[in-house]
Write a protein that binds this DNA or RNA. Sequence first.
DNA 1: ACCTGAACACCGTTCAAGT
DNA 2: ACCTGAACACCGTTCAAGT
Lengths: 190, 190
Amino acid sequence: MQLHKRDVVEAATSLLDEYGIADLSMRRLARELDVTPGALYWHFANKQQLLGAVADRILQPVGTAEGDWRARIVGNCARLREALLSHTDGAELVSASFASGQSEAMSAVLAQLSAAATDAGVAPANADLAARTVVYYVLGFTADEQSRMQWDAAGADVVQSVWTENPSARFSFGLQLLVDGIAAHSRADA
Amino acid sequence: MQLHKRDVVEAATSLLDEYGIADLSMRRLARELDVTPGALYWHFANKQQLLGAVADRILQPVGTAEGDWRARIVGNCARLREALLSHTDGAELVSASFASGQSEAMSAVLAQLSAAATDAGVAPANADLAARTVVYYVLGFTADEQSRMQWDAAGADVVQSVWTENPSARFSFGLQLLVDGIAAHSRADA
DNA sequence: ACCTGAACACCGTTCAAGT
DNA sequence: ACCTGAACACCGTTCAAGT
């Protein structure tokens, strides 16, 4: 039976969820699909590209946010974080795909955030950087949060501090910092 | 002649500078030191720990910043970025070591930024998160900047846009956004 | 104490050849 | 067009045994 891109991405995602990013190898994935490693290279140029496709699948539920610029930034980021937390090592995988420019979905998120920053009054030349700053925060925070969560679930005694309790509130606080910065800067900018 | 931790870190750093993080393997490093791979495991528990030591070596020039809280944040970040840019894939390596909690130097930077945030009037419970947000920005921005630089140097025609021209000014803009956010938030907080 | 030899259990990628 | 077989050139880590 023919192998399709969708099946490969699907299998890769369940491998990720069950064993984590360290065990998501081309060879293991091929084994899971009852296929030779070389077969994957008919459908994907390399591992980076395949991981980019997995990232896009993970980010599918993010969609588009509505409302004023603040609501759109907060909404987008909340749903981005949620999507990342829904898969083992999701933040790490998406970070890598974002860094290598292999995730179209991340580009879409970036475009939405950039538009929101423009609406906030940030000069067009700086809107993209404001958007990226927000993305760096969400990816950094969530990767941190997720690695602590997973350590914890694995039974290690994580230092139970302000960090591990109420991560959603902490996420909001940090994000608010950026929103406030954008608001302040747009005034100085205008 | 005996192998010392310092020699290993030194050799690892020059391997990094010459060939990049992808070619910085335990086996290659051992070859460079005219030693068996197993020898490295007498001095370091694993590769992560060794990379952490390389990260600390890279971050040695960062030191401590003086002045009011704004100057300390801006100063620390500028010197952090400079240190990262001084080594091939420096931002990527330090990011990884920061994420795995293997860099004492990054913890020191975090502590300085956290103290600055506290001085700015951020509640102690939130100062660490404010500091982390700044670190996420510096690492994210610089990794991005560096990968574009290296692509460019490798002869690829990077999209010459607002991005590649005057990265220092762009870096300052994004950082100012965070500083403004901290300033705004400390008022709301107090 | 410090290192070698040798193994274990893997990797990503390529490509002629098959169907 | 799509996949196999087989190879190439590697990995990180462990550990008995040597000095």
